[in-house]
């Protein structure tokens, strides 16, 4: 009691309430900071890098096989599209553009903005022109 009285000389009026409020604000700030960091870390970890890696390999595989079976070389758009549809696993979508000398074929319709992986492959067409196919893969 004596001590409180002694302290009250230095803390008159509502200063105690102010200190309490500052205490709460600092505590809340720290809690919010920790929670924000946790949520940020979790949201980052949910966009798995391995799914990007698998999409990358999927695109490489599909267009390598199309190249080795001469479907790309002949610019046969129907065969290319049907082969892609056959090889593409469920849940994935793929669009592509082939640029070949003065010929261009663009299959792009609705490339989703959610997690898109894109890649390229260079090949030689039947007239020995250097051509390029660019593709976009996303999770449907």
């Amino acid at each position: 009691m004596e001590l409180t009285k002694w302290f009250s000389k230095f803390l008159p009026g509502n200063k105690r309430a102010i200190i309490f409020l500052v205490d709460i604000m600092i505590a809340l700030f720290i809690v919010v900071l920790i929670l924000s960091f946790s949520v940020f870390s979790i949201s980052r970890s949910e966009t798995s890098p391995s799914s990007k890696l698998q999409a990358h390999r999927l695109g490489q595989d599909i267009f390598a096989v199309l190249d080795y079976t001469d479907s790309l070389r002949t610019f046969d758009q129907i065969t290319i599209r049907s082969t892609i549809d056959t090889l593409l696993p469920l849940g994935y979508s793929l669009d592509f553009t082939i640029i070949c000398n003065n010929r261009v074929y663009d299959s792009r319709q609705d490339v989703s903005s959610d997690f898109v992986f894109s890649g390229e492959r260079v090949f030689i067409d039947e007239y020995f022109h250097a051509c390029m196919v660019r593709y976009w893969i996303w999770l449907a």
Binding site: Q54, L58, D61, I62, V65, Y68, T86, P89
Partner: peptide
């Protein structure tokens, strides 16, 4: 599980 597309002869 990892799936890779390859050629086995002329078959995909």
């Amino acid at each position: 599980t990892i799936r890779r597309i390859v050629l086995y002869g002329t078959h995909k």
